[in-house]
Simulated assay, not measured.
Amino acid sequence: MKETVILEPLKENDDIEKYKVIYKEVQNEINSLHNSEDIDQMTYDMFLDDVLQMNDENYIKAIRSNLSGPNVFLKRKPSEVRVNGYMYAFVCAVYIVSYISKSQKGMSALILDQAAKEARQGNLDLKHQVRHIGNNFSNSVETSAQEATYLTLQMPLTKATRQVVFINTSPRHKRTFLLKQLSALEKLGPDSTEIAIESDNDIKRYSRRPKQLENWCLADYVSQLELQYPKTSESSDHETEQQENESKSENEEANADVIEENNNKINITLKNGIRIYQRKTPKVIRFVKFNYKTDS
């Protein structure tokens, strides 16, 4: 094309059959252009006069005879006949739209509801109910061969240069929490409080931090420090009990020294064997937003 134009289909009363025959001849000539030695020097007018031997009007009508709807034709030289239409922003938008609207055999609301009912009726705990629904979802969604391979081999689908940790700084009565393991709950009395049945978390561990870390704020404690429990060959119940007893000894003076390595890195070993050390790469903190209401 000599310039970018929008062409519409040719009407039936415009000798459309005649121009469809011409269009096939045009296509044959265009397909053979890459064999031409003079294609780099060829202009649009030279292509019409020397190759097609027709005027601009008939050429345009031949193109229009093969259209089923309005179409954009970009300005192109004969040497660019193999160059696809491109515009950086347009191509990016087309890619995103085609990706989010790709064929997807997802679960219908009816199938998802049925899977939820089956999970509830199967006398399963919450963890296995979620797993049951997840399996039904995975089996009903179209998956590529590559993604299926990763899922089968339990390989991570994504990777990140930073770990993100969430700190729930809402008031205590608005926070969600995990329960302790069943073996630990069975040891509690009938009058146990909500705090007693709550599993350990970052905020509780921060409140019990040793004196060497008393000047550390919550964000730095969670993002920069890591806890390492001593290795044990005993059961996980013992490990749970050990974590519960952490509150009794973590506030005590550390048994070992505060080892200052390169760049004053923290490395503390407590009397119960728990080690607190500084991460090489801090985690990224994500807080929940909330508003305090006061009487003043």
Rank of each mutant, 00 (worst) to 15 (best):
199 S>Y: 07
210 P>D: 08
10 L>N: 01
257 D>S: 14
118 E>R: 13
214 E>G: 01
208 R>E: 01
70 P>D: 04
250 E>I: 04
34 H>T: 10
247 S>C: 08
179 L>P: 03
27 Q>F: 09
268 I>M: 11
212 Q>L: 09
38 D>P: 01
283 K>V: 08
21 V>L: 07
27 Q>M: 13
109 A>G: 00
189 G>R: 11
13 N>H: 14
6 I>M: 04
195 I>E: 14
44 Y>T: 08
249 S>P: 01
149 T>N: 13
120 R>C: 11
291 N>G: 09
164 V>E: 10
25 E>Y: 11
176 T>V: 13
177 F>H: 11
70 P>T: 05
11 K>M: 07
218 L>Q: 02
104 Q>H: 06
35 N>P: 05
88 Y>W: 04
273 G>E: 00
203 I>R: 02
178 L>I: 12
279 R>M: 04
32 S>V: 06
193 T>I: 11
232 T>E: 01
261 E>M: 08
252 E>K: 14
152 T>G: 07
289 K>N: 12
234 E>M: 03
253 E>Y: 09
202 D>V: 14
38 D>I: 08
108 S>L: 01
231 K>G: 00
246 E>L: 12
60 I>K: 02
42 M>L: 03
23 Y>S: 07
164 V>Y: 08
48 L>V: 07
174 K>C: 13
206 Y>S: 05
116 A>L: 14
154 Q>T: 13
238 H>P: 00
254 A>V: 14
111 I>A: 06
194 E>G: 10
276 I>P: 05
208 R>M: 02
96 I>Q: 09
255 N>L: 12
66 N>W: 01
259 I>L: 15
199 S>I: 01
236 S>M: 14
279 R>T: 02
77 K>L: 09
26 V>P: 03
206 Y>T: 09
135 N>K: 11
27 Q>E: 15
45 D>A: 10
119 A>I: 12
238 H>F: 12
45 D>R: 10
169 T>G: 13
141 V>G: 00
236 S>N: 14
211 K>N: 13
80 E>W: 03
106 G>R: 06
175 R>A: 02
49 D>G: 04
196 A>S: 13
233 S>L: 11
59 Y>N: 01
264 N>G: 15
165 V>C: 04
88 Y>E: 05
151 L>A: 07
268 I>A: 08
9 P>N: 06
121 Q>H: 09
155 M>P: 01
214 E>H: 12
176 T>I: 12
261 E>C: 06
85 G>Q: 04
235 S>H: 10
259 I>D: 10
186 E>T: 05
277 Y>D: 06
252 E>Y: 06
95 Y>V: 12
100 I>V: 15
267 N>S: 12
262 N>P: 03
200 D>I: 15
125 D>P: 03
264 N>I: 06
32 S>W: 05
22 I>G: 04
210 P>C: 08
161 T>I: 07
119 A>L: 10
70 P>N: 05
84 N>V: 06
123 N>C: 08
178 L>N: 11
141 V>L: 04
77 K>P: 00
172 R>Y: 05
41 Q>R: 11
210 P>W: 08
214 E>S: 14
206 Y>F: 15
168 N>M: 06
159 K>C: 05
294 T>K: 10
182 L>G: 02
19 Y>D: 00
62 A>R: 00
96 I>S: 09
163 Q>R: 12
108 S>D: 02
165 V>D: 03
135 N>H: 06
40 D>T: 09
285 I>R: 08
110 L>T: 02
160 A>V: 06
40 D>R: 05
286 R>H: 12
264 N>K: 14
